[in-house]
Design a protein around this nucleic acid. Structure first.
Lengths: 253, 253
DNA sequence: ACAAAAGTGTTTGTAGTACACCCATGG
DNA sequence: CCATGGGTGTACTACAAACACTTTTGT
């Protein structure tokens, strides 16, 4: 008999309390988007003793609702509060975790069949302190265009999240949640371009954003240590932002 | 001690086999839309011994995926095959079934906490034979504008389904699944108006539909037993329909 | 001078909305 | 003739897309 790996010992330890704490068969996976240095990032965990990365996830406590579980998981992983969360799909393939757990004992909590509910989250990169959990060695931001290989069906979950984010760009408070309090117009445009995966015309974008009447221009431009003209700073006018979102920026028919 | 009601006996009977057959804590609820006599209908079940109605639903078998479970449930309730199914949300409130089952014994399968995944379905009214299940006395179509009181959170589930249907009207094969093989332009327009809850301009609707290039006009008009001019019959050109849907009829940005 | 940012103008094309007109046809 | 259905014309509006010009500002 081989020695169980350290990873397996950890799984077994978490497993013991899990049976009491959580509702079986149901899990939550979160796709956390952040925006930094002109690129769109996702928060990933590198599993201990494994080359694979995974999405932050967890289980639903007996007395919890799904969304509460997602909030709790995200607060543990990011330290941030008031995170924008949106459910986007359920993943129930029979064999979705088969490959990953096949070498581990059947009594593990994690080896049950799980139906996973996907949430995507939008966070202010500057407010997040990525924290690994007890099964992972690292928690880090990764560029969405250069993702490492992901465990189980997490790649599919990520793709679905990004697709949903794209579709909801016109209707949901997306800039508001991904940008710091104060930001510049080029930053906002870059963010939109990254989400949509294509260039947008600057002049048109400017007019459109100003036209929505949800931005407040601040008096002072960014005190740039860099070169060239300092860009104007903006912040969202929260109240008008909320009401604009009620109607949606636009809809069909 | 009171006698257990007939309804309770039935619950207890179903309960016994359920523990072996199904994955606990996970259920499926279906909002089945049909179109008939110029109104939009939903398939509902009237619970035995109860005044309340409920959505057709069920549980996921051990070796089943969620969608397969929904398909099975719908085939049992409607007799129809190849039903268009779309997942639209997860309902996980802690107390979502509390009120309904409070007078029944705690050992009942149904009294567990369930996380319910909502699917909406679009069916050809003429192909459906509503079938009650063993807990319900009636399975019947109800006008969406005159729904009876629904059990648990089924009203909320229905509302969410209708909202999703409305939003997806431009992107998904909605007319195709709700109408019989052959239909007239006024019928198609009426369907759209019912889903959207508002009148549409006839001329514009006609041009738009013809412009999508997914309809085939048939040689013969409807041999109307009624009065006035016989309307033209159309059917969907399945192939062009599918490709048009790939792209979506329209998108933002 | 240069490069980035800001603001505005113009043109073209497409799509939705509203209204109106004419024809066809079955009773 | 009338009510319904079919098909088209047209004008107004909104918006997107592409492009261009100007001005401001920090190094």
């Amino acid at each position: 008999m081989e020695q169980p790996s350290e990873f397996q010992s950890l799984l077994e330890e978490s497993s013991r309390s899990a049976w009491q704490l959580y509702v079986p068969h149901i899990s939550v996976d979160c796709v956390v988007f952040g925006f930094h240095e002109a690129s769109l990032k996702v928060l990933l965990l590198k599993m201990k003793d494994q080359e694979l990365w995974g999405l932050p996830g967890g289980y639903m406590k007996i007395e919890e609702e799904l969304r509460e579980a997602a909030v709790r998981i995200l607060e543990e992983r990011t330290g941030a509060h008031n995170i924008f969360l949106q459910q986007f799909g359920v993943f129930s393939d029979l064999n979705r975790s088969e490959g990953f757990f096949q070498d581990f004992p059947d009594t593990l909590w994690m080896k049950q069949r799980f139906i996973s509910v996907g949430f995507y989250a939008l966070v202010d990169y500057t407010k997040v302190q990525p924290q690994a959990d007890n099964l992972s060695s690292t928690c880090a931001w990764q560029d969405i265009n250069r993702l490492p290989e992901l465990m189980m069906d997490h790649r599919q979950i990520f793709d679905e999240a990004l697709l949903t984010l794209r579709r909801q760009l016109n209707y949901k408070p997306i800039g508001y949640n991904l940008l710091p309090e104060e930001f510049t117009m080029p930053e906002l445009q870059k963010l939109y371009e990254l989400i949509l995966g294509k260039k947008l015309n600057r002049g048109n974008f400017y007019r459109k954003m100003v036209g929505y009447d949800i931005l407040e221009k601040l008096d002072e431009p960014r005190k740039s240590g860099g070169a060239y003209k300092a860009p104007n700073l903006y912040k969202f006018h929260v109240e008008r932002y909320q009401t604009a979102l009620q109607n949606g920026f636009k809809e069909g028919w």
